[in-house]
Design a protein around this nucleic acid. Structure first.
Lengths: 218, 218
DNA sequence: GCGATATGACTTCTGGGTAAGTTACCACGG
DNA sequence: CCGTGGTAACTTACCCAGAAGTCATATCGC
């Protein structure tokens, strides 16, 4: 009220500063959401913090006040996304599925988890992010965890199919992560497709291509 | 000689300008090679043209003289890489392989073609490149061609497996391109691995997972 | 000499980052 | 119920490094 009156009187245009009553924790979440989307969509290098601030409805210095730097903000986004994804993959890994079934269940979990924030997956694979410093540490931490779980699953799968060559496993792990990656991309490009539909599709495709044979223990 | 003498006399440091006898066409190829590596490795946004010029052993204005702008240079790199990859994929598509066999042969061709320039594949999938203008046109042109060929191969494959759903085909095409992508990445990360070894590995993995069944017509 | 090949030294502008100040909420004494 | 001072939330306006892009000029082959 008072502010509006003063602003309206307007001879000296009043500053727009001053708290809007949003507590720090909440504001940080808003910023993280906007920043994750931007980073995940355009990549680290091509993301502009002024735009992020504008999209979040605040000014740039507030972003810096809360996150310190562009790298700090990225690291925070990364940490959230990495923990979210890593926890879910680990939860499924602790289940009893093996072979292809484990793969399908993992995808299932990812679709459910990332519905509404499909871009998060991309954060972990950004080639334009600095390869040294704080970001690299966080990236390494999460990718190592996820890679290890994927490696474990692929090792099981290939063992069932009779292949125990370590480099074969490494290649197959990379291919598997590439599949997940591309499925997420496709999903981002087709926003009308629900998570449930994706699961159906993926299951159908796996079954069609791999049959019920090929080392699949259901 | 004369130049060295003059430079050595050195009270007024002479300009380093003047032709070095390298014809434009050759110089352009040198620049394209260096730029493709940089763009493919760091992405469009994170690539610095001063560095590209330095790595090519020339000065920045020469790059601008020959390619007009950063976008122009990128478009030129893209056009070379896209045509190279597209032509090879098309050549294989015109062969008689179908189903999984066609996939393996395509990978075979890519490994042979991109040996020594493994980063080229990345140019077509750079998220930090401008999504409008000349670059977008060139990207679209080549990705559409490659996607179409991949789509064609996947359609055949899935038809053999009894799936003709258009969206299933679309998803599977994306997954296939993701597999190629990740295999190239793995290859970049393991420079000691030869193209022949990659082909062996991939063949072994496909056989182990898909068996000789699953719609494979060899 | 002339045109192609080349460069040093600029200008411009984008975007990360900062200094300094403004406003609102809130706890607490009166 | 009313100041009132302290602190947290916020902004405007700026700095400046570094990268895109340009200009005038230099050298060499023919």
């Amino acid at each position: 009220m008072a502010r509006t009156d003063l602003a309206a009187r307007g001879s000296t245009p009043r500053s727009n500063a001053g708290t809007k009553g949003v507590p720090r924790a909440e504001r940080e979440q808003q910023i993280l959401a906007v920043a994750s989307l931007a980073f995940g969509t355009h990549g680290f290098a091509a993301t502009n913090l002024s735009e992020v601030a504008r999209d979040a409805g605040i000014s740039k210095p507030l972003v810096y006040n809360y996150f310190g730097s562009k790298e700090g903000l990225y690291a925070a986004c990364l940490d959230d996304a990495g923990a979210l994804v890593g926890d879910e993959i680990e939860r499924i890994a602790r289940g009893d599925a093996v072979g292809i079934e484990r793969g399908i269940r993992t995808l299932d979990g990812m679709f459910a988890l990332l519905d509404g924030q499909r871009h998060l997956w991309r954060l972990l694979h950004d080639r334009t992010a600095p390869a040294t410093g704080a970001i690299a540490t966080v990236v390494r931490q999460h990718t190592e965890r996820i890679d290890k779980l994927a490696h474990e699953g692929v090792t099981e799968l290939l063992a069932l199919a009779g292949d125990t060559d370590e480099r074969d496993i490494s290649v197959m792990t990379a291919a598997w992560l590439g599949i997940v990656d591309s499925l997420m991309d496709w999903w981002v490009a087709h926003p009308d497709e629900t998570a449930a539909q994706m699961v159906e599709r993926v299951t159908r495709l796996f079954t069609a291509l791999l049959g019920d044979t090929a080392g699949v223990a259901r």
